Simulated assay, not measured.
Amino acid sequence: MAEQDLTPVFQLQRMYLKDLSLEQPNSPTILLEQEQPQVDIQLTMGAEPVADGIVEVTVTATVTTKIGERTLFLVEAKQAGIFEMRNIPDEQAQGIVGVVCPQMIYPYLRAIVSDVCTRAGFPPILLAEVNFQAMYEAQQAAAAAGVEGAEGATLN
């Protein structure tokens, strides 16, 4: 029985849209502009313990489109997942939270951002594929080198 208690467990408990906002502060006049907008996409990740062996992982996309200095539209979507993780060594757990969990969440976030843009009357914004392994390794290297701000990017 004791062996069963030490069996590693990793499973998705629930996936959900945690936050979503759309702003069009300069509509309708900016919609008449013929100029091509500039698109800026920011991606952030976070992790919070919920209970013993349970962690919430979030991936947030912020898409800002501007024509000149005026905002055409701004979309921010935060997709979350609740994951059960038990009997997993800390170094492996950090990698799972920093790589595996975001990889599971991200396709849903991509679909939401594209859908919201389309429903708002704009062409869909297709978020690029992300190599979460490379992103995680870069964050770990920055944290190990003591780069200022690396702690904010580290997924713990």
Results as ranks from 00 to 15, higher is better:
62 T>C: 06
26 N>Y: 05
68 G>L: 11
109 L>I: 06
151 E>I: 13
54 I>R: 08
11 Q>E: 08
82 I>S: 10
99 V>W: 06
78 K>S: 13
65 T>R: 00
125 I>R: 02
90 D>G: 11
27 S>C: 09
25 P>V: 12
70 R>S: 08
139 Q>T: 12
153 A>Q: 11
99 V>I: 12
79 Q>H: 07
90 D>L: 14
146 G>I: 05
136 Y>N: 05
69 E>Y: 05
88 I>A: 10
109 L>E: 00
64 T>Y: 01
92 Q>E: 09
146 G>D: 10
23 E>D: 14
155 L>D: 01
129 E>D: 07
67 I>G: 01
103 Q>N: 12
120 A>P: 09
149 G>E: 06
65 T>A: 11
29 T>I: 07
11 Q>F: 07
46 G>L: 12
133 Q>F: 15
76 E>C: 09
65 T>D: 00
91 E>I: 13
70 R>T: 05
20 L>N: 07
8 P>Y: 12
142 A>Q: 10
81 G>H: 01
139 Q>C: 13
72 L>V: 08
108 Y>S: 07
15 M>V: 10
124 P>N: 11
78 K>V: 08
88 I>R: 06
140 Q>R: 15
28 P>V: 09
88 I>N: 04
60 T>H: 02
1 M>N: 06
120 A>M: 15
53 G>V: 05
88 I>Y: 07
146 G>T: 11
62 T>L: 08
